[in-house]
Amino acid sequence: VTDAVRLVLREHVNRQVHRSTPIGEKVIKIVRDYIDRNPSRFPAIAMFGRTDQNNILGYTKGSGHDRVYLFLPGVLEDLLGEKFGLQTALQKLADAGYLLKNGEGSQMQVRVGDQMRKRFYAIRASISFDGDMEVPAQSNG
């Protein structure tokens, strides 16, 4: 009985690391695994419009602790929408501190080129590390 209680408490504490629920943990795991399996399909945002768009899932912006994966909207919608519902999945990512956004909605507007702006779903790169980096701070938008 003691071992069972310890296991339950350990799992509860592990979930709290991401301030998440079991569904939230599944969403985080799917996004993490997708990034880890496809790193070459996220070139730097400076490559926007210069690379073959057929293989691109999104872009990266920043470096080190400030690095962000900028998912093309259709990519994240296909990855999470059917299984969890897009808004639920985005809320779970936001609750865990991984979804970055500016302005209204769940997307981030990013300048690409001199005058063009595009919208992406921005996910902190720290999602792809397990426990090596600190848990991201909550974002208020």
Rank of each mutant, 00 (worst) to 15 (best):
K26H: 11
D114T: 06
N54F: 04
N102P: 06
G81S: 06
G113E: 02
E25L: 13
F120K: 07
R117A: 03
M133T: 13
S106P: 08
I123N: 15
Q107N: 12
N14W: 03
V68S: 05
K26E: 14
A89C: 11
N102Y: 04
P43M: 00
V135Y: 10
R41V: 05
Q115S: 09
L80V: 00
L86N: 08
D95I: 04
F129Q: 12
L9H: 01
D52F: 12
A94I: 08
K101M: 15
R37Y: 01
R111E: 03
L76R: 08
R117W: 07
A44R: 15
K92N: 14
G49N: 10
L57M: 05
L7E: 12
G49V: 11
G105Y: 01
Q138Y: 11
D78Q: 14
M116P: 03
S128I: 10
K29T: 10
D130Y: 10
G131N: 13
R15W: 00
I23L: 12
A96H: 09
L100F: 05
K83E: 15
G113R: 01
V68Q: 12
D132W: 11
D114E: 06
D132S: 13
R15D: 02
A94Q: 15
L93S: 05
A137N: 13
P136W: 02
H65Y: 10
L57C: 05
M108P: 04
F120E: 04
T51I: 15
G131R: 14
Q53F: 02
P73G: 13
S106T: 10
D52W: 12
D132T: 14
K26G: 13
K61C: 08
I28C: 04
V8F: 07
D78R: 15
R117G: 01
I30W: 04
D132L: 15
L86K: 14
N54P: 00
T51L: 13
K101C: 14
I127Q: 09
G74V: 03
